[in-house]
Simulated assay, not measured.
Amino acid sequence: MIILAGTPIGNLSDASSRLVQALTNAETIAAEDTRTTQKLLAVLGIANRPKLVALHDHNEKAKAGELVEFARDHDLLVLSDAGMPTVSDPGYGLVAAAVEAGVTVTAIPGPSAVITALAVSGLPTDRFSFEGFLPRKGGERRSVLRALAHERRTMVFFESPQRLAASLSDVAAEFGAGRRVAVARELTKLHEEVRRGTASELAAWAAEGVRGEIAVVIEGAAAADVAFPDAVGQVLELTRSGTRLKDATAEVSALTGHSARELYQAALAVKN
């Protein structure tokens, strides 16, 4: 079978006993960076020296078939450099190929930067979306944020320290300067820091320079943030992409808080 194993995102004491046991017994490990895995084995005091196979963004497509066939008869432990494989890390292609081939996939749960950042953000946690990394280019980044401006769920992003200030400025421009944001830096590490404030406040803070690994948690839009005509426009946009009018109004109603019946009638009037 294929075993996805969550590894520490910073503090090595977060390595679970199941992870240590799996590393101790593993014969073959598919690792995002074999050097990082070697360091993990050494720091955890694990004497086992399994065969290490590189599995990263540049070779996963080519390697997936071979590794799936190997996993038909052997256990394959899969590691990313930190956190859970497949979550903004290599592994999704391998899992998809394994599912298609009928090979068992299981997981050893472990630390997650997404959940950790969400938990300490001080923002609503009952409904959230993980959006991964924002685009590097400003125009593309603003386009992505513009499409998410009316998302009512709390949103979690990853960002590089070099682009954080620019991204937060774009958040302020597209979501509003007062949208609440939390920036979690170096989670579980010695210099862990969580900054909370408005998008404009944190953009100014980040402009002074930020280091480390970054997760950004952004408050979802309030229902009142989406005007009724804009909500109707969202319904029409969904119908143009092939969604049934009834389903489109239900989806937009859930996101904006506007009456599904009123949205349906308004959209129908426009269409007719």
Rank of each mutant, 00 (worst) to 15 (best):
G65D: 07
L67K: 08
E69I: 03
E69A: 06
F70A: 01
F70R: 09
R72V: 00
D73W: 10
H74V: 04
L77M: 09
V78C: 02
L79W: 05
S80G: 00
D81Y: 10
D81A: 09
D81C: 07
A82N: 10
A82T: 11
G83W: 02
P85N: 06
V87A: 10
P90E: 01
P90F: 00
G91W: 03
Y92H: 14
Y92T: 13
G93E: 06
G93S: 04
G93Y: 02
G93D: 01
V95S: 08
V95Q: 08
V95C: 02
A96I: 12
A96H: 15
A96E: 15
A97L: 11
A98F: 00
A98T: 00
A98L: 00
V99Y: 14
V99G: 13
V99W: 14
E100K: 12
E100C: 03
E100W: 06
V103I: 03
T104Q: 15
V105I: 05
P109I: 08
P109F: 07
P111M: 05
P111L: 01
S112D: 09
S112P: 11
A117M: 04
A119R: 15
A119K: 14
V120R: 12
V120Q: 08
V120F: 05
V120N: 09
S121C: 04
S121F: 02
G122W: 14
L123F: 05
P124G: 02
T125K: 11
T125S: 12
